[in-house]
């Protein structure tokens, strides 16, 4: 390789790592039979290594069953990892208890996909957005009400709607309420799990812009979980592509979208429908066969080999390591695409 740092890319660190994850594993046991013995496990997340840098947006993208949502729940410690460590600001939070996590909940917040079910219908907006203050026992300057109204204004809602109930708002507005709630205690890291996929197209754009504005204004760090590659390209600084519980490719946005190296990434990008009729005929399509295999019994070695058009014998027997093939671009594949031309290898 042209680059010297072939290990985990420590040299190209531009900002400090806010959160690092190493060897992260989450298996959900499946019990069966008379004695309810564990017969198998859903290998939702199976060995992740990555870092989230201060102030950036790192996106996790992939299809259903790739483990992106589970990863989000692990990062916010809504789930406890089966193995591996999660380090937040230099502190190992992988196995902290509920009580030990509580003070950290101020710093790590989550935004959910469904703006309908994540808000309590019986509580006013004021109560919902003000809840984090009460839970954390924080008394903001000027009182909770004033602070909540400031939050509402920040996310583009009318502060006078303080006493309204969630059902009086549209989907996009409800997602804003959810965002206002997460912002209450000035978090450092926000994990957003499909925050715009339940919204209408025109509303999606509003929320995406809002998230970007807030990031700039409040110096937030995002982990953005999504299946929509177009949205991900728009919001991310870096992108990790996941497949069946593993990261197959992680890179800076420009590098990933210009030179996708993993065949899965290439196929994924080729499958995204584009609002341009000319592409119908011009575009070279790569069509993957079948669906994503079950994470209960994932294919051995390279998990993508069952659907990969480049798969060889080695893909069935040997798991490819996630190695750096370009600056800030790591890929786990034996036969990557778009290799840099002047490869001084061998």
């Amino acid at each position: 390789m042209a680059l010297t740092e072939t290990t985990s890319g420590t040299a190209d660190r531009e900002a400090a790592d806010l959160l690092t994850v190493s060897g992260l594993v989450k298996h959900f046991p499946i019990r069966k039979g008379v004695l309810q013995r564990q017969v198998a496990a859903v290998q939702a997340v199976d060995g992740l290594d990555f870092a989230v840098r201060q102030g950036e947006t790192l996106s996790l993208v992939g299809e259903s069953g790739c483990g992106k949502s589970t990863t989000g729940r692990l990062l916010t410690r809504l789930e406890e990892p089966t193995a591996g460590t999660i380090t937040f600001e230099g502190r190992d939070i992988s196995h902290l208890s509920e009580g030990q996590m509580r003070p950290l909940r101020r710093d790590i917040q989550m935004i959910f996909q469904d703006p309908y079910s994540s808000l309590n219908p019986r509580h006013t907006v004021g109560k919902i957005v003000g809840a984090p203050y009460r839970l954390q026992g924080v008394e903001p300057e000027g009182g909770v009400k004033k602070a909540v109204q400031a939050q509402l204004e920040l996310v583009g809602l009318n502060p006078e709607h303080y006493n309204r109930y969630p059902h009086e708002f549209s989907g996009g507005q409800r997602q804003r309420i959810g965002i206002a709630r997460t912002l209450a205690l000035k978090p450092k890291l926000i994990v957003a799990d499909e925050p715009v996929s339940a919204l209408d197209v025109s509303i999606q754009a509003q929320v995406v812009n809002l998230l970007e504005d807030l990031q700039e204004e409040l110096d937030l760090t995002y982990v953005f979980i999504a299946h929509d590659l177009s949205v991900v390209r728009h919001v991310s600084d870096r992108v990790a592509v996941m497949y069946l519980g593993k990261i197959v490719e992680i890179a800076d946005r420009e590098s990933l979208y210009s030179f996708p190296m993993h065949p899965y990434t290439v196929a994924l990008m080729s499958a995204v429908p584009v609002p341009d009729t000319r592409r119908r005929t011009q575009r070279e399509r790569i069509r993957l066969q079948g669906d994503v295999p079950s994470p209960i019994n994932p294919p051995p070695a390279c998990r993508f080999h069952t659907r990969c058009w480049k798969a060889q014998e080695v893909c069935r027997t040997e798991e490819p390591a996630l190695v750096q093939l370009r600056r800030g671009h790591r890929v786990a594949c034996h036969f990557p695409e778009n290799l840099p031309l002047a490869s001084p290898e061998a």
């Binding site: 197209v201 025109s202 754009a205 509003q206 812009n209 590659l229 979208y257 990008m269 995204v272 584009v274």
Partner: peptide
């Protein structure tokens, strides 16, 4: 126009900002 401006596009250079339609249906 609003719909086209609202969606980020893979086939064009990345724009700095999306152009959403204001308000709600």
């Amino acid at each position: 126009w609003g719909l086209l401006g609202s969606m980020p596009r893979m086939d064009r250079d990345r724009t700095e900002r999306l152009m959403p339609i204001k308000g709600t249906p």
